[in-house]
Design a protein around this nucleic acid. Structure first.
Lengths: 141, 141
DNA sequence: GAAAAATTTTGTAATTATTACAAAATTGTA
DNA sequence: TACAATTTTGTAATAATTACAAAATTTTTC
């Protein structure tokens, strides 16, 4: 908690109670949560928390580069407190988003913040879809 | 137009007038249009076209693999009639989505439809963001 | 330490994208 | 032609996100 506060400060984010709680949630739940999921988890701990604050804060985290904003899910934006370059996989059946830290994705690291042609890259998102092992063998289609 | 009809048929899609018009639009406008943009362009030609048909048709095209459904844009889904594996870049300022067919993206092709760990990949989306050359030199920030 | 200024949070109300659904129209087939 | 299946349409609902101004909190200045 105290670490989270310093983490925010060192990234130019004033550490309010709300911001600490939200960042702390992202750092301890690497499940690529939606706004709805974060809200549902935090409201019991912080009953006055508003959705607007949550949206504003997540946008701030994204701008300050302490969170990734993932567009992998067709329906909603998901967030990731792990800002190391890595890829994601979403199961088309159960919707779970998995991290992919495979070393055979060198281009993800090398191209990051480089130029392709005359385009100045500032962020990359590499997303896979398919069926996860669990859903693959599950016959309850 | 006649070609478009055959193209749909050969992919198991019954070629209705609406479907031909929509596919034809995608094949001749490689601008990664939104549903709204496609609708605005086609309604003058086909005044009875409904949004529901457009949504259903684009979903069908995606399922039948004659269109890509892009989640690169935070606000809305975009579609691409070019189904060859390739990457995209969206300018954070003007919003334009550019194609990236760079040869230094080998993994995009090799990993496509392969396995990573115990995950069965069926589609890949590689998205970059940043400023395009045009917006980069434009000082009207 | 109190007052003023700046920042952050909140709640409500809009907006936008997407989906549900059933009736109407169209197309394919017996 | 008539029946069945498919496709299209329009309206209404849902869900995600944003706008906005008032209230609360924090920081700065005197």
């Amino acid at each position: 908690m105290e670490l989270t506060k310093d983490y925010l400060s060192s990234h130019g984010i004033r550490p309010s109670a709300q911001r600490i709680a939200i960042m702390d949630y992202l750092l301890t739940h690497k499940t690529h949560p939606t706004v709805e999921e974060i809200y549902a988890a935090l409201v019991p701990l912080m009953p006055t928390l508003s959705k607007t604050t949550l949206y504003n804060t997540l946008k701030l985290f994204y701008d300050k580069k302490v969170a990734l904003m993932l567009n992998i899910d067709e329906h909603t934006t998901r967030f990731d407190g792990d800002v190391q370059p890595h890829a994601h996989f979403q199961c088309l059946k159960c919707g779970t988003v998995y991290d992919i830290f495979e070393p055979e994705l060198p281009e993800l690291r090398s191209v990051y913040k480089q130029k392709i042609g005359d385009l100045n890259i500032t962020s990359v998102e590499l997303s896979y879809k398919g069926l996860c092992a669990h859903c693959e063998q599950d016959n309850s289609n």
